[in-house]
Each structure stands twice: as structure tokens, then as C-alpha cells.
Design a protein around this nucleic acid. Structure first.
Length: 958
RNA sequence: GGGCUCGUAGCUCAGUUGGUUAGAGCGCGUCCCUGAUAAGGACGAGGUCGUACGUUCGAAUCGUAUCGGGCCCA
């Protein structure tokens, strides 16, 4: 018969147990608790306290320089990813002992804000002065700086929020001009007519970063450019043998018919084979490979290839423009292909980057007869004069048709650049722009050799910068290799004016001294001074004017800087001007799009100013994508609204999600995925809570016990050491997803499923100060402190809350009011032998086997409680048996059994075999520990208890 | 079209210099416990490692091609 326990007795013994106690709530309620904790941090000046605490640190400073987000709109998932990664890494460095001042920044100037203000003002805009518009833009930017600042702080980002850097702030503006002055001094700044991407709707040049490529349908035309000397052309094709006067044309294809008035040349590839094709009493020249394809457009025409030559044979031949009285010639270009078109490329140096380069080489004019508003000027043929380029497209096609020069017209779908703000297609237009030369050699004072910006930047990138991931280096190098000269001018109002003055002959006054003079003025008054002060006031009364420049007759430049020049100079205005920071930064951390953006455009100014990179290391992360791996847009169901998700789940949940994904690649995310991380937070929180609740009566200073290797405590302690080492290494390598995985798994498996579970019996049932219980508490206390600290950089709120509930913190942490003020945990230093590891592995294997048997007994015999079972270990080897016996009650507890025993092994096989037996019919159950044991009833005073529990209860009575 | 890059269970990740039946956690399913309880435990089902060739005695791991993503550029 099984021995049933009376319900009443159960109750009475419950009072004698050491059941868990804690005020640390199981339910986190992050949504309300986080803002309260944030407020607490503000009141205690956590950020400043941290800087102070590390001010004498032998580790010194570690600087992460913040890339400034644009001050526009609420923060989105991309901001969240970026700022969270920065914050986690900074907090890790702080806990390593570094002092980590972090100054967040914002990019405040630029088209997007100006565009917004234009929309808000509408027609009123025309009545307002530039300064008034700029004031509106300033207000707008300031408003969003404040909004985003609040949102970042809510996310738990720690930093100098009461004094961030703003690119529109006057000291910052002055700093940007200081950087520019150096470029002027080094002779790298020049002004030139050059085709640039031009936004017709905004009447401004655009940066590459301001272009968006979209698929659109455009008219494409195949145009015949008649050869000036057909006889000679026939000779070229016949090798001088044949003579013919059949009219010949060069067949050219373009998707931008409106650029044809600016055509000055036709480019061919020297190695490509070109054919002379006769049709309909005339002939055309085009690439042999494309004859079939092109004539397929005109199935009505019978055609014959007469002869072929190579492109180089055509060089120098002349053609007549079909509707302008002008002669052009055939030139060579590398970029000519035979994948589409005709293999002869219409070249208008005023309307394209490649065309421009060809034009410069061939000595052609940079001609573009298009005005800023997108309409043709007076130099254009009469039939398009005053028309917009888009209106001109059909007119030109019609004109060609009338001339008999239109071979074919085909609608084509292709990718074409658009203005990122107005979403309208852009044009390339030659305008006067300011440039920074990439290939002009220069030297700094004391430098023997002269080296170009491009070369210097590449050297810095190759030899002095670490990249995470390391392919970032190749990517940045590739961009430095191919980038054109930097066009730094924009025709806008909301930005930093380019400090150039012109005399009445339009000659520029631009020198290191003139720029620095204006910089001083800006440091005092801000860049609005450019619009409110006269040139004399800007330059100062003692400015030494060069000959030919009379102060009263000076005119101010109207262009402003490319915003990238401003944000790219932040290392100067921030790192070099704020003396508590350091240059160069230890780390720049941004999305991988910034290889082209901020990384490159910070590297270049720093190279020009300092000769070195502004960063020692560059870390990039990927982009948020939908769970299927494709791009997200706001209209998608999977779109994650960062602020909304924080309000719904709490910042810690978002932060944990962010840290769980390998950010080197794309980060798949959806609201459903975020939600799952609530579960993971809870698991971690409950694990901490469990540890904590069993330490309510434990003080490590007085109660700590020696941890022996031959015990689960020894195993757990070693596992914790390993965890500390691995997590620290993962943080060090910025592999945050590994940190998360290690910690989460440790909580779920090592603690929750194995160790914590096994310790329950002794924690609850042993006498409070029994050595076995104290030993376990010793390990659990160390575990709790260490894990809370390791979690702190990620789960900033939850870890800090847990920290508050830990009693009797280690001495070195005693004065740390917040977990964020502490240093990382260190491993115990206990050496673990290979043999010991093997022994623990054996025990875990035996545990697995026992659990399987237990499960079988449960299914087959209805044995639902492991406490009703006995585990028998069959061992022959005396030494091994002695080793295992040292684990004592651990051997039963590790599988949750009531009792364990050893027996002689009578069969061959593994050194140890384990067997689980159902003891419901054999032993009585202890009414207090619920374990079935042979020693239940041994104590006459407590016949319903096992020996250990009887003693424990007696102990309590004393 | 070009540069860089990614593609292992529903999800997030491990898989050392190519070597036995590809692992973990979560999620899911089934069950148990009710002294971590809006907690905890056990067991289980899930993958032809994007696809196709190739190198090799042997490939998730090397090579080529291809498909599908992402970032940047044209």
C-alpha cells in the first residue's frame, strides 16, 4: 500500500519550509515601470555619476562618436537599431572600466526640412526673407531634436542629452568653416562648370545621396547623324578599295532626346566591331552585334551588311547634327557597350557625368542650353526655346522625323534617377559648382611628399582602420576609388553658406584667412550673419583685402554647403572642440549605407584637415526587413512603428530583440516577432526572480560556504565562470546576438531546467543554515549578481530593477546604487581539470538517461512525480563509484527523484548505468519534502518524515 | 548593368582546418506538477543545409553557374 499523506499535515509542514520570498515582482509591467526608472536615473544624474566614477579609471576613455540622424519625424526602427547597438556597446565599455562620454547629435540643415517648411508656408514663402525662412527651418529642426531626444531617452539610451551637438548650432557651424579653411589653404577647392544632378522642381543641384532610382517609361529614339564625308566613310569600310556616294549616317540611341541639342560628339569603343549597313538607298553605321536587334525595330526595311571595321577606325570622322548647324566627331569611350542601343553613344558633355569626362579629355565645351527651371535657353534651336525638357522630347522626335533622321522611336522602361523629395525625375545640367579635388596632390606643413585626398584616404582606410564586419574595408575602398570630385555647393537657403565673396569682375575672394574671418563671425552670431551682415562686417574691419577687391563692392556667394560636408566635419566640431572627448574616435557605428555617406564623408574632411581618419574602427549594421527578407515600407502589415512598440511592450523588449539578431546582415522584424521577445524577457526575469527569492536569508559575508568540485554547485559555478568569459568575449567582439543567446540559454537551461530545479529540495527543506543550503546559496548569489550585470547593457531597465532587489551585494558593488555603475563580473578563478569536466558531463548524460526512463514510467505506469522514484547507479569501478558518491543527494535531485542508491553492475556495458524505479509501493513518502525514501519514519517523534526533515523541524523548534 | 553582401528546422542562431544518423534555444504539440504558480518540469514532431553541376573516397563546409533577398552605385 502506498502511504498517503493527510492534507492537514501538508499545511502544517509548509510553515516549516524556507519558501522563496522576494519583492521583485514576477510581472514586469515595463510600460509603466520604465518611465519611472528613467525619471529616477535623471534625478540621480546617472550619466554624470558614471563619468565621474570612471574619471580616475586606469582604462582611460573610450569614445563612440554618434552619427547625427536627420532632425525630422519620429524615430523609426532604423534609429532604434542604431542607437540601441551604440548604447549596449557603450554600456559594456563603461562596465569594463572605460570612461565613455557620449554626445548624441543631429543633422539639422538640409533640403528635407526646407521642403517641409516650403509646404507649410505655401505662397507666403515668396514674401519672406531668406533669414525668416531659415528661422522657420531652425524652429522645425529644434522641435524634432526635442521629440527624438525624448524618444531615444525612453529607449534607455544614456548620453549627454542636455547638450547634444547640432549641425546648425553656431559653434558647430564655425567649426565646419575651420575645416573648409584648411581645404582652401591646401588648394583643393575649385569652382567649375559641371553637369550635376539637377532637381528642376527645387531648382537645385542634388547630391548623389539625394537621388532615388525608379523604373519609368521614357521615349527612346534611334537617330541618324549624317556623315560629313560619306565617300571617306565608305573608304574606311572598304579598306580604300571601293568608292560610293551612298549617303551614310551614324546611328545613335538615346533615352533622353532633350539632350540632343547639346550633342557635341559620338562615342564608340575602340575594340567593338561596327558594321556599315545598307538599306533603302542609304547606309548606317552601328555595332555589328546590334544590327539584328536594331533592325528588328524596322521590319519594313530590307538591310544588308556591307562591311565591318573596328571602332578605332572610325575615330575622328565627322558628322553633321541633324537639326543644328554644327559638326561633331567620333570619339572613343571605355564605357560604350553592345548590350543595348547601337554601340554609338550620343555624347553631351553638359548633360552627363561620363559625357563630361569624355568632353574634358577631347577638349569639348561643357555645353548645356537648359536653364535652372528646366527650360531651354536662347542658344537652343528655336523650336524648343523656352520649352521644358519634358515638353521638348516629343518636339525633338517630331523634328527628327521631319528631317528623315528618326530611324525608330521606342518606349522604354528603365531605371532613372529621381529627386528623393519631390519624387520627380532629375536632369543633368551644367552649372557653376564648388568642388573639392580628389586627385590633386598636396602636402601638410613639414611633409616631404605631396599626396592626393583619394590616395591619403585609401591609405588610411587600408592601414589604420578596423572594420566590423571586415568586408566594410573593401566596400569603402571601392567607393573611394571611383568617387568623383566632391561637389560641395547647393543652391538652397537652409544650410551653411559657402563663405566666398566676389568682386565686380566676378572674381572670388576665397582664402584661408577669409574663411576663418567668417568662421569667427559665425561662432558669435551663427550663420544667419551671412544674410544680415555686410561683407565688411563679415570679414572684420582689419581684414587685409587683396588688390582688386574693394570692400564696398563685394558680393556674397549664394550657395550653401552640401549637408554632408557639415555632418562629415563633426569629428572637428565635436571631438576636437569638446576637450573631454578624444580624437580620433574609437568607434563609428552606423548602417551599412553610411559607407558611402557619413563614413566616407567624415573620412575625407578629416583626411584633408588632419591627414588621418577620424575613427579607429568602423562598425556597420544592416537594415530592418520584413520576415520574408524583403524591404519594408510604411504601408506593410509588418511595418514596425518603433515608438508604438515601445509603448506596447517596453523598451527592454525592443532592445532585447535588437540584440538577438546578427546585425551584420539584414534584421527581419515584424510586430509579431517583437512580441515573442516579451516571452524571452519574462523567462530571464523569472530566472533572476527565482535566484533572488531563495537568497532572502543569505548574506555572503557571513553565510558563504566553500564550493566543492564534486557537486552540482561546483558544476554550476564552473558553468557560470564559462558564461562570464564567453559573454565578455562576445561583447568585446560586438557579437551581441551571441551575448543574448548565451545568457538566455543559461537562464532557460542551466539555471531554470537543471540547477535551480535540482536545488529546490535543499533550499526549501534543509535547515536554513545547513551547509548544503548555504553552499547552494553561495553559488546562486554569485550567479544572480553576475547575470544581472551581464544583462545590464541590454536590459537596462529590468537589470537595474533586479539590482535594487539584490540584498547584500558584493563589497565592491556596495556603493553602486545602479547596476550601471558597476563593473563586469569576473570568473571565480577556480581551475577546472579536464577530468572534472568529464565527470560533470557524465552526470549530465546519466541525468538525460534517467529523465527518459522517468518519462517512460510516467507514460506506462502513471508515475507522475519524479519524487516517487528512486535512481540506482550501477558501477563496478570502485574509484568511479567513490567519485560519484561524493555528489550525495545531488544525484537524486538532479533528476528530481526522491532517493538514489548504488549497486554492483552485473552486466557488461558502460562504466555506469542508471536505472529509475517506481517506489510508490515500496517506500513511504515524507510529508514535508514529498520525497519517497526508505528512512521515512526513522524518527519516532516525526513518523511521517524522513530523517533529514525530522532533524530540520526539530532544529526550528529550538 | 556594376561593387559589396546574405540565403541551415515556423523564428533567432551554432556548425572548428570538408569526415560517422546536421545541433541549440524559442515557438508548436502531448503530458506532468501545483511549495518559482498569470510560474516550473518532461517528452515529442519539425531541416534533401536556396537550386544545379563540379572537385573529392567523402561537402552545409571548396569551385562554377543559377535563383531569390539586402545595401550602395549606374
Amino acid at each position: 500500500m502506498s502511504t498517503e499523506t493527510q492534507p492537514q499535515e501538508k499545511k502544517s509542514y509548509k510553515e516549516t519550509l524556507n519558501l522563496p520570498q522576494t519583492d521583485f515582482a514576477m510581472k514586469a509591467d515595463l510600460v509603466t515601470s520604465e518611465p519611472a526608472r528613467l525619471q529616477k536615473w535623471r534625478e540621480m544624474h546617472l550619466y554624470k555619476r558614471l563619468l565621474l566614477a570612471r574619471s580616475e579609471s586606469p582604462k582611460g576613455k573610450w569614445i563612440l562618436h554618434d552619427g547625427p540622424p536627420f532632425a525630422n519625424g519620429d524615430i523609426h526602427i532604423g534609429h532604434l537599431i542604431n542607437k540601441t547597438l551604440k548604447d549596449v556597446i557603450l554600456r559594456f565599455r563603461t562596465m569594463q572600466g572605460y570612461q565613455t562620454p557620449y554626445v548624441p547629435g543631429w543633422d539639422c540643415h538640409g533640403l528635407p526640412i526646407e521642403h517641409k517648411i516650403q509646404q507649410e508656408l505655401g505662397p507666403k514663402l515668396r514674401e519672406m526673407s531668406t533669414v525668416e525662412v531659415r528661422r522657420k527651418c531652425h524652429e522645425y529642426a529644434a522641435k524634432y531634436v526635442k521629440i527624438q531626444s525624448e524618444q531615444f531617452q525612453r529607449l534607455g539610451i544614456l548620453g549627454e542629452w542636455d547638450d547634444p551637438y547640432l549641425t546648425m548650432e553656431k559653434g558647430y557651424e564655425a567649426g565646419t568653416l575651420e575645416v573648409f579653411a584648411k581645404f582652401v589653404e591646401n588648394g583643393l577647392v575649385y569652382k567649375q562648370l559641371k553637369p550635376v544632378p539637377w532637381s528642376v522642381s527645387n531648382q537645385t543641384a542634388l547630391a548623389d545621396a539625394e537621388l532615388e532610382y525608379k523604373d519609368v517609361e521614357d521615349p527612346s529614339v534611334y537617330v541618324e547623324f549624317p556623315a560629313v564625308d560619306p565617300v571617306r566613310l565608305h573608304e574606311v569600310f572598304s579598306g580604300g578599295m571601293g568608292k560610293s556616294e551612298l549617303p551614310v549616317s551614324f546611328l545613335v540611341w538615346t533615352t533622353t532626346p532633350w539632350t540632343l541639342p547639346a550633342n557635341l560628339a559620338i562615342a564608340v569603343h575602340a575594340d567593338v566591331e561596327y558594321a556599315l549597313v545598307a538599306y533603302d538607298e542609304r547606309a548606317v553605321v552601328l555595332a555589328t552585334d546590334l544590327v539584328k536587334q536594331v533592325f528588328a525595330l524596322r521590319p519594313d526595311l530590307r538591310h544588308d551588311i556591307i562591311a565591318t571595321v573596328h571602332g578605332r577606325d572610325l575615330l575622328g570622322l565627322q558628322y553633321r547634327h541633324p537639326f543644328i548647324d554644327r559638326v561633331g566627331r567620333i570619339v572613343e569611350a571605355e564605357y560604350v557597350t553592345t548590350t543595348d542601343g547601337t554601340g554609338l553613344v550620343h555624347t553631351a558633355p553638359g548633360h552627363g557625368e561620363e559625357d563630361y569626362n569624355t568632353g574634358v579629355r577631347e577638349g569639348l565645351e561643357t555645353y548645356s542650353p537648359v536653364l535652372a527651371n528646366g527650360r531651354f535657353d536662347d542658344t537652343a534651336p528655336e523650336f524648343v526655346r523656352g520649352k521644358t525638357v519634358w515638353e521638348a522630347n516629343p518636339l525633338i522626335a517630331q523634328n527628327l522625323k521631319d528631317q528623315g533622321a528618326l530611324f525608330a522611336e521606342v518606349k522604354i522602361r528603365h531605371s532613372y534617377p529621381h529627386d528623393w523629395r519631390s519624387k520627380k525625375p532629375i536632369i543633368f545640367r551644367a552649372t557653376e559648382q564648388w568642388f573639392i579635388a580628389m586627385d590633386k596632390p598636396f602636402s601638410f606643413e613639414g611633409e616631404a611628399e605631396t599626396v592626393s585626398m583619394r590616395e591619403r584616404a585609401k591609405r588610411a582606410c587600408s592601414d589604420h582602420v578596423d572594420f566590423v564586419p571586415d568586408w566594410g574595408r573593401a566596400r569603402l575602398l571601392g567607393m573611394l576609388e571611383s568617387r568623383p570630385d566632391w561637389c560641395v555647393s547647393r543652391q538652397r537657403a537652409w544650410g551653411l553658406p559657402i563663405p566666398v565673396f566676389y568682386n565686380d569682375k566676378d572674381e572670388p575672394l576665397l582664402s584661408k584667412e577669409s574663411v576663418l574671418a567668417v568662421s569667427h563671425r559665425f561662432r558669435e552670431h551663427g550663420s544667419d550673419a551671412w544674410f544680415t551682415l555686410s561683407p565688411q562686417e563679415l570679414l572684420g574691419h582689419d581684414f587685409p583685402y587683396p588688390p582688386g577687391f574693394e570692400p564696398e563692392k563685394l558680393r556674397k556667394e549664394q550657395d550653401i554647403f552640401d549637408v554632408w560636408f557639415e555632418s562629415g566635419s563633426s569629428w572637428h566640431s565635436v571631438l576636437q572642440r569638446r576637450t573631454y572627448l578624444q580624437f580620433p574616435a574609437d568607434l563609428y557605428l552606423e548602417g551599412s549605407d553610411q559607407h558611402r555617406g557619413w563614413f566616407q564623408l567624415s573620412l575625407l574632411p578629416s583626411i584633408g584637415f588632419n591627414g588621418v581618419a577620424p575613427f579607429k574602427a568602423v562598425l556597420t549594421h544592416g537594415f530592418a526587413v520584413k520576415p520574408d527578407g524583403t524591404k519594408v515600407s510604411k504601408s506593410d502589415k509588418e511595418y514596425v512603428t518603433a515608438t508604438q512598440e515601445i509603448d506596447r511592450h517596453g523598451a527592454d523588449v525592443l532592445r532585447l530583440w535588437c540584440c538577438s539578431v546578427d546585425y551584420q546582415h539584414d534584421l527581419p522584424v515584424s510586430p509579431a516577432m517583437i512580441k515573442e521577445f516579451g516571452d524571452k524577457c519574462r523567462k530571464i526575469r523569472n530566472t533572476l526572480r527565482y535566484l533572488m527569492s531563495n537568497l532572502y536569508d543569505f548574506n555572503p559575508q557571513t553565510d558563504a560556504a566553500q564550493v566543492t568540485a564534486s557537486s552540482l554547485d561546483g558544476w554550476a559555478s564552473a558553468a557560470l565562470d564559462k558564461l562570464i568569459v564567453e559573454v565578455t568575449a562576445a561583447y568585446e567582439q560586438y557579437e551581441l546576438h551571441r551575448v543574448f543567446r548565451l545568457l538566455h540559454e543559461f537562464c532557460a537551461v542551466e539555471i531554470s531546467a537543471i540547477y535551480g530545479n535540482a536545488m529546490k529540495d535543499r533550499l526549501y527543506c534543509e535547515a536554513p543554515d545547513s551547509p548544503l543550503r548555504r553552499r547552494s546559496q553561495t553559488v546562486m548569489h554569485r550567479m544572480l549578481v553576475a547575470i544581472t550585470k551581464l544583462l545590464a547593457p541590454m536590459l537596462v531597465y529590468s537589470a537595474d530593477e533586479a539590482w535594487e532587489h539584490i540584498q547584500h551585494k558584493p563589497l565592491e558593488d556596495a556603493r553602486c546604487e545602479s547596476v550601471h555603475l558597476t563593473l563586469l563580473p569576473q570568473p571565480s578563478g577556480e581551475e577546472v581539470s579536464e577530468k572534472q569536466e568529464a565527470e560533470w558531463r557524465l552526470i549530465m548524460e546519466l541525468r538525460d538517461q534517467a529523465l527518459l526512463q522517468l518519462d517512460k514510467l510516467k507514460k506506462e505506469a502513471g508515475l507522475n512525480k519524479a519524487l516517487d522514484a528512486e535512481v540506482i547507479f550501477y558501477v563496478d569501478d570502485a574509484e568511479l563509484r567513490r567519485h560519484l558518491e561524493a555528489y550525495g543527494v545531488d544525484l537524486a535531485d538532479v533528476v528530481g527523484a526522491g532517493f538514489h542508491s548504488f549497486a554492483e553492475k552485473d552486466t557488461p556495458g558502460p562504466a555506469v548505468e542508471v536505472k529509475v524505479l517506481d517506489r510508490r509501493e515500496t517506500y513511504a513518502v515524507c510529508a514535508r519534502s514529498w520525497k519517497r525514501r526508505p528512512d521515512v519514519g526513522s524518527d519516532a517523534e516525526y513518523p511521517d518524515l524522513c530523517l533529514r526533515d525530522a532533524l530540520a523541524v526539530k532544529g526550528l523548534k529550538k
